Simulated assay, not measured.
Amino acid sequence: MKQLPAPEHAAIVGRLRAAGCVFAEDEADLLVAEAPDAAWLENAVQQRVAGEPLEYIVGWAEFCGLRVHVAPGVFVPRLRTSVLVHEALRVAPRAPVVLDLCCGAGGIGAAILAARPDAVIHAADIDPAATACAERTLGEVAARASAAGPRPAGRSQVYTGDLYDPLPSTLRGTVDVLVANAPYVPTDDIRLMPTEARDHELTAALDGGLDGLELQRKVARAAGEWLAPHGHLLIETSRRQAAATGGILESAGFSASTVRDDEVEGTVAVGERAHHHTSLSLPAQRDG
Rank of each mutant, 00 (worst) to 15 (best):
A129S: 11
I121G: 09
G107K: 05
A124L: 03
A92G: 13
A111V: 02
A95G: 14
I126R: 12
A95D: 14
V98F: 06
T131Q: 15
A119V: 00
I108A: 11
I112W: 14
C102Q: 09
G106S: 05
A119D: 02
A119K: 04
A114K: 11
P96M: 11
R116M: 12
L101K: 06
C102D: 00
A95N: 15
L99H: 00
P93D: 15
A115L: 08
P117W: 06
R116V: 04
D127M: 02
A110E: 10
L99A: 02
G106R: 04
R94F: 15
G104A: 06
I126D: 05
R94M: 14
A123Q: 05
D127E: 00
A115P: 04
A114P: 02
V97M: 14
R116C: 13
I112H: 14
A130L: 09
A105Q: 11
L101W: 05
V120A: 15
D118G: 02
P128S: 04
A114D: 08
D125N: 12
A92P: 14
D127Y: 06
A105L: 09
D118A: 04
G104N: 05
G104L: 01
I108R: 14
I112A: 11
A129M: 07
A115H: 13
V97P: 09
L99C: 02
D127K: 07
I112S: 14
L113T: 12
I126T: 06
D125Q: 11
G107V: 05
P96F: 13
H122N: 05
P96H: 14
D127H: 07
G109Q: 09
P93W: 15
G104W: 10
V97R: 12
P117M: 07
I108W: 07
A124H: 06
D125I: 02
R116K: 14
A111H: 10
V98R: 07
D100Y: 08
G106Q: 09
I108P: 12
V120Q: 13
A130G: 12
V97K: 12
A110T: 08
A124C: 08
P117I: 03
A111K: 15
G107D: 10
I108F: 06
I108L: 12
I112M: 14
I112T: 10
A114N: 13
A95T: 14
G106P: 05
L99G: 01
L101I: 08
G107T: 06
C102W: 03
A115K: 13
A111I: 07
A110V: 04
A111L: 07
G106L: 09
V120G: 13
D100L: 02
I121C: 04
P93A: 15
A129F: 05
I126S: 04
P96C: 08
L113V: 11
C102L: 07
A105R: 02
L113I: 12
R94D: 15
I112Q: 12
A95R: 15
A110G: 09
G106V: 06
H122Q: 04
T131E: 08
C102G: 04
A95I: 08
G104C: 01
G104K: 12
C103S: 15
V120P: 03
A92K: 15
I112P: 10
A123V: 01
A119I: 00
L99K: 01
D100M: 03
A111P: 00
G104D: 00
V120K: 09
D118R: 09
P117V: 06
L113P: 08
H122S: 00
G109A: 07
A124S: 14
I121K: 04
P128G: 09
A110K: 07
A130Q: 10
L113M: 11
I121P: 02
I121W: 00
T131K: 13
